[in-house]
């Protein structure tokens, strides 16, 4: 399988993906999300009453949608990694097909998330209902913004590959950067999923 070839190649080569400065952005973003997670934990365990509010909020979330969204994002990460492997092997048509699958997963994530927001809104649960829902809507909203930016970037790469002219091909660095960003979005969702849906 082509994917494992790339992994082996990367191990042999021992280089930093994209360029070292790029990781300032990824770790910067992870740093901010870590601060947000710590704020969430602090607010949750402030007193017995706040813990009860957070547990009640967590139980009222739709676990099925949360779990499907987790699986969808993990699958899309796999598609993007596969697409990058095809791109490195100069198989642009297959790379684009993988990326489009990844974008499809991303779009279904956005769709499910919006459905979940509307469902909560219909139940009268909004951002000002309780501390838990304040955190829930804002944190997942910031994450959703990241997903939308990621989908646009993936779409931009698909568009560039589709043009197929030598000079219009995206550089490998750009592709790697977008892929790393997409994996980060995935990682952040795993954290959000465990904090909001599973911690009860």
């Amino acid at each position: 399988m082509i994917f494992s070839d790339v992994v082996r190649e990367n191990r042999a080569e021992k280089r930093v993906p994209v360029e070292p400065e790029f990781w300032l952005l990824i770790f910067g973003d992870l740093f901010v999300f870590s601060a947000m997670f710590i704020a969430f934990i602090v607010a949750r365990f402030e007193s017995e009453a706040t813990t009860q509010v957070f547990i009640a909020g967590s139980l009222s979330l739709n676990q099925a949608i949360g779990l499907s969204n987790t699986l969808i994002l993990l699958t899309s990460s796999l598609f993007v990694a596969q697409g990058l492997a095809y791109f490195r092997a100069n198989q642009f048509r297959l790379a684009n097909r993988s990326l489009l699958c990844g974008i499809g997963c991303g779009l279904s994530f956005v769709g499910l998330k919006l459905f979940e927001y509307i469902e909560k809104y219909d139940q009268g649960l909004t951002v000002t209902t309780s501390d838990f829902f304040g955190y829930y809507f804002t944190f997942t909203g910031v994450h959703l913004l990241h997903v939308v930016i990621g989908i646009s970037l993936l779409g931009f790469i698909v568009f560039k590959i589709k043009k197929q002219q030598e000079q219009a091909l995206p550089s490998q660095g750009l592709f790697e950067g977008v892929a790393c960003y997409w994996h980060m979005v995935d990682l952040l969702w795993l954290m959000l999923f465990s904090l909001f849906y599973l911690l009860n």
Binding site: L25, M36, V127, T128, D131, G134, Y135, T138, V142, L145
Partner: peptide, 22 residues
Amino acid sequence: NMWMLVLGAPACVINIFHTGPF
């Protein structure tokens, strides 16, 4: 600068909240 873009973006919703991180 890109990182600062990420850090500054949440400031656009401060009109909604009285408490909490935002």
